[in-house]
């Protein structure tokens, strides 16, 4: 064991850091894009009925194909990894944002308008806060999936914990597989805990059960 760590210890730490950065930057970008898109779509449900199914089909393309093809066009770059991960991470958040917004009681929106709120204020002060629990459960799902997908970065020479897993599988080294898998699982659990904490912090007290 100690021999293993002296051989791979530094590499494991670097891989964890790379993996973490990929996940956090992709999920953060996906979150912003998904919220904006979700708000726009909730104004145009007829568009949503077309766009959401198309995006969900896109979601079924295996990551290995997507990152492989993107690699051929965009090369061995951080941006290839982050773009691929972001695109995959958008959908669960977008879908939940849309569903959350559409489900807001129209009476409440009317009430807000009645108080003299502008459209933007209604979204910001009434609709989004009410949809928040659903949006956050989408965010949590995206985060967990992205931790898993980020292993694909190793395919295109961009490191991540996937590097340890692939090396382990190809060289018949079980310890190496676990050295990639365990930190990844812990990272997923840790990040989804963080998402819960953020949710608790931003959710208006009246909405907490």
């Amino acid at each position: 064991m100690s021999r293993f760590f002296s051989l791979y210890g530094e590499k494991i730490l670097i891989s964890i850091a790379q993996h973490f950065l990929y996940v956090v930057s992709a999920v953060a970008m996906a979150f912003v894009i998904a919220i904006v898109l979700g708000v726009l779509l909730s104004r145009k449900p007829s568009w949503a009925n077309v766009l959401l199914p198309i995006l969900s089909i896109f979601q079924t393309i295996p990551g290995i194909v997507f990152i492989g093809v993107l690699f051929i066009y965009n090369g061995m770059a951080t941006s290839t990894v982050v773009i691929a991960l972001t695109i995959y991470a958008i959908f669960p958040i977008l879908k939940n944002t849309y569903v959350g917004l559409v489900d807001v009681d129209p009476a409440l929106i009317e009430a807000a308008k009645g108080c003299g709120m502008t459209n933007f204020q209604t979204i910001q002060k009434v609709e989004l806060p009410l949809a928040m629990p659903v949006i956050f459960s989408g965010l949590k799902m995206s985060t967990v999936y992205t931790v898993s997908w980020a292993t694909l970065a190793a395919m295109i020479g961009m490191g991540s914990l996937g590097e340890l897993i692939y090396s382990g599988i190809y060289s018949n080294n079980n310890t190496l597989i676990l050295a990639g898998a365990i930190p990844a699982a812990i990272m997923a659990i840790f990040l989804s805990w963080i998402v819960d904490k953020i949710k608790d912090a931003v959710l208006p007290r009246s909405l907490k059960e």
Binding site: S148, T151, G162, I165, I169, A181, A185
Partner: peptide, 17 residues
Amino acid sequence: EVLQTVPALALLGVIMV
């Protein structure tokens, strides 16, 4: 929930062990 958090490739790798 934890099972779901393990990357698919790693999960298969570990079961293969």
